[in-house]
Design a binder for these strands. Sequence first.
DNA 1: CGGTGAATTGACGCTGCTCAATAGCGGTGG
DNA 2: CCACCGCTATTGAGCAGCGTCAATTCACCG
Lengths: 229, 229
Amino acid sequence: MFDTHGALDKSRSSDFSTLAPASPQVVELRGIMGLPTTASSYGRGEEIYGEGEPADYLYRVTRGAVRTYKLLSDGRRQIDAFHLPGDTFGFNAGDSHVLTAEAVVDTVVGVVKRRALEGAAKTDAKIACEMWRTTARELRHAQEHMLLLGRKNALERVVAFLLDMDRRLSVVGLMALPMCRRDIGDYLGLTLETVSRSLSALAEMGLIGLSGARQITLRDRPRLRAMTE
Amino acid sequence: MFDTHGALDKSRSSDFSTLAPASPQVVELRGIMGLPTTASSYGRGEEIYGEGEPADYLYRVTRGAVRTYKLLSDGRRQIDAFHLPGDTFGFNAGDSHVLTAEAVVDTVVGVVKRRALEGAAKTDAKIACEMWRTTARELRHAQEHMLLLGRKNALERVVAFLLDMDRRLSVVGLMALPMCRRDIGDYLGLTLETVSRSLSALAEMGLIGLSGARQITLRDRPRLRAMTE
DNA sequence: CGGTGAATTGACGCTGCTCAATAGCGGTGG
DNA sequence: CCACCGCTATTGAGCAGCGTCAATTCACCG
């Protein structure tokens, strides 16, 4: 009856105090795909890796939040995903990153060498399969997001975002968003003003509650779900 | 000096003629990832699989073209990719499809059982790795497309589409598009009218030539490339 | 408290959508 | 062979949703 809930292991985080290591790079307890992992910290806004850099590491968020994005030459930005505690990112079939990764807030990530992972995958089919499933999960998210970006209106996009964040980081019905309105806009293909207006409209309708710009409660999930079709 | 180009081994494919089978479902010459494949035909507009159906097969386009898409409940459609000869599709980590696949024109595909593939992946790390790379390639395309859908204007989207199609299906500088304006619009997050207007504008500028609605020549690739940043 | 970045709100304009009419094209049959 | 039909594409006119620019207001932190 232990180790049955692979996907939602947000539990392990407490009771590590006895193992506190001496090195500044703390070794994490459970690694990524079974491999040993070292911890690394990034300040709010700090770059973790840039587009075009060699992709030598795989990351998992321990604390905080990470945005991965692409830029056009004139500065237009498209955030393709927010990575929250428990999520992996930086995985890549090619040699170099095609996205840039930045810490949204002060963030701690676990890091594993890509070569160690690929070495392990050669002998262990379980790891190879896990790598594939990780990439496939990202692909499904991207497909869902293309539908949002190509065919949903502003209100539908914001509602979809809120429901996703609610699912991923709500603790007691209250959601504390780590990212600003501009980040949300660049994720949803909108401007920050349109995001703000959509949130105000939803609050006006009584569908959400705003207690501080980044503290949001969903007051009617069924109706919100119906809005994204 | 043999077997050094792992990724592009489309070579081994000839000299199977002696094995030509009697069945109506002709065994294809070149398999998918080395596995034997049966051919299957679909008429223009015919569904190959639907969203929610069990994902039991992997497909490769032999002739024709395939669109994969998602729908909203009110009929809005987002085409996530066009699959042209040589492309694989229908690959999926989950048990059921999250997209619908349809033949854009009369199409022949090669089909391989998913279980055969996953069985082979268990013992053959090369196949497992190839599966991962296939999914990773789709993911990169999706990330590029999210940037297009979220942040590019109509003209930039159409230009990006033309350059991609040119790369993938141009033979002698002339490109014969298999899909209609509505399909292009649903791929680019635009209406068919906006696609048509953008193409007319590009022809007006002398950047492309239109000889029949679906026969397009690119007259100035460098300038077109500069337009997508 | 004051300062600074984030968020809200308003006014206005533009890009792309909607609705509608017309033109082109490919296939079919007299 | 050509006339006809249906589907696809083009083009126009008007409109609306979202972006842009600008002015406050808010919240957080020293």
